[in-house]
C-alpha cells in the first residue's frame, strides 16, 4: 500500500515544487485544496476560433444539409428549420410545414450544437451521428428513410462522384452520416463580443453589458447556464422554485421533457439547460416556444428557476448581456 501512495505523492511533490509538469492533473486536487479556500466562479469559456474538420467532407455535408433532395417531396431541407442565415433555427414557435405533422417542440439552433453534452430538449441523444436518424425518419421532418435518401442520391452522378472522391465505399449510410456530422461540427459561432471581451479586448463590452453579466452571475443564472455554450452541460427541471406547468396549464407530452426518454418520475419536466449562445436571434424561447421575447424569458427564469424576481432594470441589463453572445458563423461555401 504505502509504495503506491509514495509514488503518487512523489509525483505530487515534484509538480508542487515546479520541477516538472508531469501528472499535474493528478495533483490538481491537492493544489486546489491548498490554494482555493474561497470559491470563485470560473468565467464562461469562449467558443474556439477554429475547429478541426475535414474540408472536403464538410463541403459535402453542407451540400446535403442545404439540399431538399433529402425529403421525398423535394420540399424540405435541413435548412428549412435550421436556417444558417438566421441563428440556425426557424424563428417559429414550433415548425409547421405543409404536408408534415406539426412539431411538438421549438426548433433549437444548430449552431454550436456539437458542444452540447446531449442533444434535444429531453437529452435523448448523445451524439450527432445517432441523432441524424430523427430528422431523416420523423414524420415531422423528412418523413423518409435512410435507404430512400441513399437511393435518391445514387441517381445523381454529381453526388456519386462527390462521395466516391472522399469515401471508397461510395454512398452509404455511414458516409452520408459522416459528411453531415462533419459539417455540423463546423457550425460554430466564435467572436461574439462577449468572447472577445473574455479574450482580453477590454472595450468589447459596454458598462451596461458588463453589469448584465455581473447580475447574470450574482443572481444565479450561471449555476445552470454555464460552460462554453452558456448552457448545454446539465439537466434541470423547468420550475425548480415554483411550479411552472401548474400555472401555465394544459400539460402536453412534450412538456414532460426528459421523462419521455428515461420514464423516471423525477425526470418529469426536466430539460437540458439550453445554450444561450446566439440567444438574441433564436426566439421564440423555451421548449414550447412560449416566450416571445428575451425579456419575457429572463423574467420567467428568475421567477421559476431562481425564486427571486428581477426588476425591469436588471432584466434589461441581463438582456443587454445576452445580446453580446451572438457570434459569427464564418465557415461556409455557398453552392
Amino acid at each position: 500500500m504505502s509504495h503506491g501512495l509514495a509514488i503518487f505523492v512523489a509525483t505530487a511533490l515534484v509538480a508542487c515544487n515546479g520541477e516538472g509538469a508531469t501528472e499535474t492533473a493528478d495533483v490538481n486536487l491537492l493544489e486546489t485544496a491548498q490554494t482555493r479556500a474561497v470559491s470563485i466562479d470560473d468565467p464562461i469559456e469562449p467558443i474556439p476560433l477554429r475547429v478541426e474538420v475535414d474540408a472536403r467532407k464538410r463541403a459535402l455535408g453542407e451540400r446535403l444539409f442545404r439540399d431538399p433532395i433529402l425529403s421525398p417531396d423535394g420540399a424540405v431541407a435541413c435548412t428549412t428549420c435550421h436556417d444558417l442565415a438566421n441563428g440556425g433555427d426557424d424563428g417559429r414557435t414550433k415548425s409547421d410545414i405543409v404536408g408534415r405533422t406539426p412539431a411538438l417542440v421549438n426548433t433549437p439552433s444548430i449552431f454550436n450544437a456539437a458542444f452540447n453534452f446531449r442533444l434535444h430538449w429531453g437529452g435523448g441523444y448523445d451524439e450527432l451521428a445517432a441523432q441524424l436518424k430523427v430528422p431523416i425518419e420523423s414524420p415531422r421532418v423528412m418523413a423518409t428513410s435512410f435507404d430512400e435518401v441513399l437511393s435518391r442520391l445514387r441517381t445523381r452522378p454529381d453526388y456519386r462522384d462527390a462521395f466516391a472522391g472522399i469515401y471508397p465505399e461510395g454512398i452509404t449510410q455511414r458516409s452520408f452520416t459522416d459528411a453531415i456530422v462533419e459539417f455540423e461540427r463546423s457550425l460554430v459561432t466564435p467572436n461574439a463580443a462577449f468572447d472577445r471581451w473574455l479574450r482580453g479586448e477590454a472595450d468589447a463590452l459596454t458598462e451596461r453589458e458588463k453589469e448584465g453579466y455581473s447580475i447574470f452571475k450574482s443572481h444565479g443564472c450561471i449555476s445552470c447556464h454555464q460552460g462554453v455554450n452558456v448552457g448545454g452541460n446539465m439537466f434541470q427541471k423547468l420550475g425548480v422554485m415554483r411550479e411552472f406547468f401548474e400555472e401555465r396549464g394544459t400539460v402536453t407530452e412534450a412538456d414532460l421533457g426528459r421523462y419521455n426518454v428515461t420514464k423516471r418520475d423525477e425526470d418529469r419536466h426536466v430539460f437540458r439547460v439550453p445554450s444561450l449562445r446566439n440567444v438574441a436571434v433564436t426566439g421564440p424561447y423555451f421548449h414550447d416556444g412560449s416566450a416571445e421575447t428575451l425579456e419575457e424569458a429572463v423574467q420567467i427564469m428568475s421567477v421559476y428557476q431562481l425564486g427571486r424576481p428581477l426588476d425591469d432594470d436588471q432584466v434589461d441589463a441581463i438582456v443587454a448581456f445576452l445580446r453580446t453572445l451572438t457570434g459569427r458563423y464564418e465557415g461556409g461555401t455557398r453552392p
Binding site: T32, A33, R36, S39, D41, D42, E45, F117, I222, S223, Q226, G227, V228, N233, M234
Partner: peptide
Amino acid sequence: ALVAHYDGIV
C-alpha cells in the same frame, strides 16, 4: 463548492 462549473465533469 470549490468548482461551480461542470464542463470538466462532462
